[in-house]
Design a protein around this nucleic acid. Structure first.
Lengths: 234, 234
DNA sequence: CGTAAGTTTGACTTACATCAAGTTTTGTGG
DNA sequence: CCACAAAACTTGATGTAAGTCAAACTTACG
């Protein structure tokens, strides 16, 4: 179950980890990552499950979902290949959100006690691990800013720009996005109804900001999108 | 600038840290916390400042604020005595949110490289540090759920219950709250306007859920408040 | 004690939700 | 590969929660 050695780690967000982990390996510890295939709709982790590992998304995309007592769902974040997920389970020992594959893909389970052992052995790896957790705090703070202060059109524009930037950072096209979420899921993520998402896509298309065909979205006028997010013009 | 030894650490959220830190101290490291007085309105950390330490709130309350490019403010969280703040700065090396005192108080600066050194030396302390970061992830995920799925009245009810619970966990009254935030600040935290906050306080008071006198709030019918949050009845 | 900051309440507006119908896409078994 | 059902999407008409504007009231503070 050990990961294939050197398997395209350079594109993986865990890269910094694994490379320092390899060096820290000299200290007598080695990271054993279990690579798992997931099919669309599979749960990577389920809310309430005991926490034991972080998961590196090797291929595909995932959503992490929190559910209210009355059944309403909030998509807390969506993850693309290279992201590390599941850190919320670390507090309290059980996962709080359910992480589900949005398409077929592959994840690596990284046993957390092994990560901690490596972090104790290697200062650089430790810092990377902490940065990983802090990055999640930061992403969520930004999401709060978005939900708390922006209007629907701004949130959707910000969402598209963020997604494009993240794909770009992983070497994919920065303007051609294939959404893996339904309109309903995008709505659950951005705090609006699917009809509103649909209407905004149509309007952005009409206004020449983007070009939409179902789940294929092409960013046409990034400048205008950015301005929309920032200025919040009516 | 070292903290007064044994200074009411039992009430401090850092307690688990310091106690294990003391034990880890046998490994030749000691935590030097700088205790600082803050006045109402003082910034504990400013957005953009280089990250060097976490801050334990020893007395008083703080808010952490994120600002949009166009000047809108989102109060990401508010912190009471016993909380540890400033973890968002760990990613990227600079603080992203500004943390401001809402009343006179006292904070301890905990140099992060010292915390990391202790974490490498002591497994239990390391786990506590990780749990601290994960708890923040969790709080923010819940806040996202709140902003993304709930209506204004539910958010305010949830806010009051959370605040009461947190005070209770620190040994204060679970039903008598003294708000340290203005209506405007509460609105900036919950994603609504100050007028809406005011109206909801008045309505909750009329309906007998709470008793409001300015910033003094007494929770009367916690059951009803909880039901309001969960059921979202119209 | 007076001014400024904060709060309340009312009248009106608006962004988004809801309800509803029709269209397109996706997936599956014959 | 096609047929057909289910799921996803679009668009319109209407409703409503919360925002905006405005004025009066209360509390905190120099």
């Amino acid at each position: 179950m050990a990961a294939a050695p050197g398997a395209r780690c350079s594109q993986c967000g865990m890269h910094a980890f694994c490379s320092t982990a390899a060096r820290a390996g000299g200290a007598g510890v080695e990271l054993i990552a279990a690579k798992v295939r997931v099919r669309k709709g599979d749960d990577v982790v389920r809310a309430g499950a005991p926490f034991a590992a972080l998961y590196a998304v090797r291929a595909g995309t995932c959503k992490s979902v929190l559910v209210t007592p009355d059944g309403q769902e909030q998509i807390v974040d969506c993850h693309i290949a290279g992201d590390i997920v599941g850190a919320d389970g670390l507090a309290g020992g059980t996962h709080e959100s359910t992480i589900t594959a949005l398409e077929d893909g592959e994840v690596c389970a990284l046993p957390f006690d092994q990560l901690e052992t490596l972090a104790r052995a290697n200062r650089e790896f430790q810092r990377n691990l902490h940065a990983l957790l802090a990055r999640e705090i930061r992403r969520e703070q930004r999401a709060l800013l978005m939900l708390g202060t922006m209007r629907a059109e701004q949130r959707l524009a910000a969402f598209l720009l963020d997604l494009a930037d993240r794909y770009a950072a992983r070497g994919y096209s920065a303007s051609e996005i294939v959404l893996r979420m339904t309109r309903d899921e995008i709505g659950q993520h951005l705090g609006m109804k699917l009809e509103t998402v649909s209407r905004l896509f149509s309007r952005f298309d009409q206004e020449g900001l983007i070009r939409v065909h179902g789940r294929d979205v092409k960013l046409i006028d990034r400048g205008a999108l950015k301005q929309l997010v920032q200025a919040g013009l009516h």
